[in-house]
Design a protein around this nucleic acid. Structure first.
Lengths: 252, 252
DNA sequence: CGATATCTTGAGGAATCTCAATACTAGTGG
DNA sequence: CCACTAGTATTGAGATTCCTCAAGATATCG
């Protein structure tokens, strides 16, 4: 239900020079630059990256990439929420991450996507052609270093999630999820953080290795205990964040 | 029950020059070099890496590193099997990977280990001081590129395992595990691969998010179906590897 | 204000876990 | 060489968590 492609430099400005200028100025004004991998580049390097970027918009529920597809572009989220997931042939799904503003997705030097991605809300993304991006990676050690760092962070996050999926109870999983949402940089809070949940209960379930019903029941019981408070179901107040952290950590 | 530290260049040869020479010649003769991250380095670069390496031995069941410890060294497995895991305060454990010959562990530029590691069998490892390693990383783009590549492989493997932990049945998990063991490069086979299982049932369970009893029961039922055959419990023959692959993939 | 999605709640069932007993294996000492 | 011991694996029976299926409540959007 978003507008279709409000920004598309390659449509509006076919000349390379103008596109370059346009893209650069847009990237310069980018609000998520500081949070993003591209924040490490400066001056000339940043301009080179901005020269190969194009913009893409997706409606809520729209598919972005599919596991196994040719990985022609690498993507960076400007706004909105994206789920990335793997699926089994019979339809079972495991969501392996939610991406939001500033998050990068895609592996340079890999021919095909290893996961599928779908927009949860309307989404704006930057797209970088894989080959051009690879060239920049070779030229700019800073860029490679940054992506390496992001990759190692992802490994650490993945291990955290393996612990959750393999060994935590439903209650601990839901608490862990809420705490992680509250700790996102995009969710700066004062004391009792208010957390937005753009994803459905079924998506939370597919992320936590549970069913929608179990997620719902668990949230209800946390609500009954006063640990969380909810106004509409897509926004929660974590009334007792520290208690939630304890539950999440398995400290009974 | 292995000998304690049969190779320790820094003890035997205190002079820097001799240690250098010693280490280099040892690294040149290294059998797992081709499988390892260091295989990408040549000549001068390789010598520089060899100059900072020391050797470490661990007995079976001995702890190698502990989650949260100061990460003074990065490690590479020469021989034996290592488990890396995360634990909850009440003792629940999730094994996030098994390492064998040629596998690297440790994240440059990270102050502390994010996981614990323990030897399953007697283990020989190379140790690289983190700071020296970091310097080499800055000097040799090839090395950084290689570790980046390993890191992205790890992310992909972790996602695979999240799918397993979140959405596969016990039967599918055990089948996936056996297939993965058979597909290891160290386990070259002809038709019906014979797989060594140096880890206990409890460790397999901690890797698959199950209990020891469920792993045992599942192996028994696969055995009754003729899909696997076992002589001693630490070695299995995958009589019907293709069938196992189907089970693992969830293709019923 | 009604239609459609999503969410919540309920009741029963299934897979896996827990607890406990038995069997195997390898290493040890007689 | 064989019995013994300790660790590991297997098997069994019952408990529990979470899932499945189904109905009802709530929210969203035209």
């Amino acid at each position: 239900m978003s507008d279709t492609n409000p920004l598309r430099p390659e449509d509006a400005v076919p000349l390379l020079g103008r596109r370059f200028a346009h893209a650069l100025s847009r990237c310069d004004a980018c609000e998520v630059r500081d949070r993003s991998f591209c924040g490490v580049l400066e001056g000339h390097e940043f301009a080179r990256l901005a020269a190969i970027v194009t913009s893409r918009s997706f409606d809520a529920r729209q598919s972005i990439v599919h596991e196994g597809d040719e990985a022609e572009v690498l993507l960076n989220v400007i706004s909105g929420t994206v789920k990335i997931y793997r699926a089994l042939p019979d339809g079972r799904v495991q969501i392996v991450g939610f991406l939001s503003e500033g998050d990068f997705m895609g592996v340079p030097a890999t021919r095909r996507y290893g996961v599928s991605a779908e927009a949860i809300t309307p989404v704006e993304m930057c797209a970088f052609p894989r080959r051009s991006f690879d060239r920049l990676l070779n030229e700019f050690p800073t860029l490679e270093r940054r992506l390496f760092e992001l990759s190692t962070n992802e490994v650490a996050a993945a291990r955290d999630h393996m612990l959750l999926l393999g060994r935590k109870t439903a209650r601990e999983r839901v608490a862990s999820f809420l705490v992680a949402m509250a700790d996102k940089p995009s969710c700066a809070h004062v004391s009792s953080p208010s957390v937005a949940l753009p994803m459905t209960r079924a998506e939370i379930a597919d992320y936590l290795g549970l069913t929608m019903e179990t997620v719902s029941r668990t949230l209800t019981s946390l609500r009954n205990e006063g640990v969380i408070v909810s106004s509409p179901p897509d926004r929660l107040v974590l009334a007792q964040l520290e208690k939630l952290r304890q539950i999440a950590a398995g400290d009974v």
